[in-house]
Nucleic acid binder design. Structure first.
Lengths: 189, 189
DNA sequence: CTCTTCATGTGACGTTGTCATACGAACCAA
DNA sequence: TTGGTTCGTATGACAACGTCACATGAAGAG
């Protein structure tokens, strides 16, 4: 019924899911290898059969999170009835929504892939390429898509990051993150 | 010569400096209470005479880093011969320079002040007020300074953050962080 | 000079990441 | 079926860490 490799793959998936859930629920400090193993139904040492160390497990969580974003972007791209400007707006809003719903996972996604984490790097690169394609449809010049896309992506990330860190308060700046996103699109795109 | 309170204040300063140095040199993992105490010339338990826990020590490091940025902004503001636009440009470039020269400290400055860290919150608030004052001199409408300043600050932070995380590569986006900063000023301010 | 205060030093405890080792079930060859 | 191999998993152990309880010793007050 379940072969050995299937069981191992399922365990690996369960470990990544458990780590992601613990991260969402309790923040980075809650992601303990012992807790991850317990939630995945295995022991504390089991992760070492799938990941060299904790950092690689977290990289797998980041890769999974990026893949989910990429899948949503794929849906946006596949919907040919959508005007390019709407696609761009929804792609930005979608990423912002992830930053608000899963702030810890979002921070992990934008953290530095310090060592060699091919899966995470590939997932990030794919999503960036998708976003660049969406931007390229709005601004007709392909050579302008790169810089404009970078400005949009970095600015959006700054808005979400400062919002999540509590440094973007409406009392101080007289503006909300949503309004900043609208300003960004109006002035940049 | 050295009273007891002076010695205690010096020790506290030495602890914060040691933590900042260790953070700059070896990243967050290098900031151990034992290592901080050793570099400050005291034992591993000494920090608990000045800070309730490690988080408060790191908050003091963040506060000190923000104060240094604020002092540089004060110099910019005091130089009345500087055109407002140049002041704004230099304030943004100065913060970007900190993000590049001290990436770990920069990340700590923009991390969430999770609990009550009055010193850190005050230092952040002061710097934001200074930046808002600089922006207000460029855009004459005081009610526009808030949103515009927020857009500039968040976007700059996004550029620096993605640059430091290695996700803003010129190969992918066909643009550098410096060019993005110039685009930002040209299109926003 | 005595007593108090308080920063500091030290031992100890629980937790964590990680490694070495042992176990056991799934696979393969006969 | 039978025997041996592979490999994911479980467990014991260790060093390092944050933190606490307690001891120490010198500075300041009377």
């Amino acid at each position: 019924m379940v072969s050995r490799v299937e069981s191992a793959a399922a365990t690996r998936r369960a470990l990544v899911d458990a780590a992601a859930d613990l991260l969402d629920e309790g923040g980075p400090d809650a992601v303990t290898l012992r807790a991850v193993g317990a939630r995945a139904g295995v022991s504390r040492g089991a992760p070492y059969g799938h990941f060299p160390d904790k950092e690689h497990l977290l990289a797998a969580v980041a890769a999974k999170s990026w893949q989910e974003v990429g899948d949503r972007l794929d849906e946006l791209i596949a919907d040919r009835a959508l005007p390019p400007a709407v696609r761009l707006e929804r792609s930005l809003a979608g990423l912002m929504e992830v930053g608000r719903r899963r702030p810890h996972a979002y921070a992990l996604m934008f953290a530095a892939p310090t060592e060699e984490h091919p899966d995470a790097i590939a997932a990030v690169s794919r999503t960036h390429d998708q976003f660049l394609a969406i931007v390229a449809e709005v601004v007709k010049g392909p050579d302008r898509a790169g810089p404009l896309g970078a400005l949009l992506m970095t600015s959006l990330h700054g808005i979400v990051a400062m919002e999540n860190s509590g440094q973007l308060t409406p009392e101080k700046w007289h503006v909300t993150g949503d309004e900043l996103l609208r300003m960004l699109i109006a002035r940049i795109a």
